[in-house]
Amino acid sequence: MNTFLQLLISALLVSSLYSLVAVGFTMYVGVINLANFSHGDTCVLGTFLMMPLFLYATKLGWISASTGLVILILIILLIFLTGLWGAAIYTILVKPLLAAPRLILLLATVAAGQVIREAIRVIYPNGSNPQVFPKLLPSGSLNLSGITLGYDSLTIIFLTIICILSLNFIIQKTKMGVAMRAVSQNADVAQMMGINIEQTIISVFVIGSALAGMAGILNGSYYGITKFNLGSNLGIKGFSAAVIGGLGDFKGAIVGGVLLGFIEVFAAAYIPNGSQYQDVFSFLAVIAFLIFRPSGILGEKIFEKV
């Protein structure tokens, strides 16, 4: 029973990370029907932006003084930076190609991901090797009748819930959120109603990339390590979660992330040699969804616009 609860916490932790990545994917698809394959690499970019920031803060002696507050500021700064990166990706890469066939745009995001990855590897000192990522999260653990609850896991789950709730608030209650929903329903009509499409799309890219950056540093500080090519895996998992949840569906992406996290953690624990093949299990799950429920776990049947 205890191992089961322990696994539950791990699964929630992995689920949190996947959900954060999946939300961005699903939002891009919702708003401009684009699968942005550089999204996973944005997560890793976040970690490689964080490390110099942290180093600099340490040099200035800020870290030892009032650690919690400084780290919070650093995280906010990083979210801001990755958000900016999202806006840049949209303006430089996506916008000029919006009129081109979708295949071209899709391949361009794949290439952009490759460029981010390789640029990190080449530019960062000793970039080919794994890098030690600073511990941003509180250490230590809570012991509840035999179950160890690491403060780091709890913080990650807590932060993810905060992010998702605030995003939900933005989407449901604010003017920007209404605009996003309107654009994803029908961009032409939204434009006629006086919604600034461009601004809406940019804000989606900013939010999506900021969350990706967040996912990246949470992932990095939990495992204490980051590497230039971690993004491909994280990105594909995030995208898989979004597909399971039904592309374009915000709540679905979170459900998909949770499902994928649980499949992975429990398959690794209960299937012999499972940890070697945990990626295989999650991809099998995605393929099963594509065959039997292509519109996703919550989604209704998709009717293509003709």
Binding site: A35, L106, V110, F239, Q276, D279, V280, F283, V286
Partner: peptide
């Protein structure tokens, strides 16, 4: 699996196939 779905699903399935093949060959 991707006959009834869209191009980005195909992209995902092909990446997944690539990774699964790589993992299996390695293990």
């Amino acid at each position: 699996p991707t006959l009834k779905t869209r191009s980005y699903h195909m992209a995902l399935v092909s990446i997944a196939f690539g990774l699964v093949t790589y993992i299996l060959l390695n293990n």
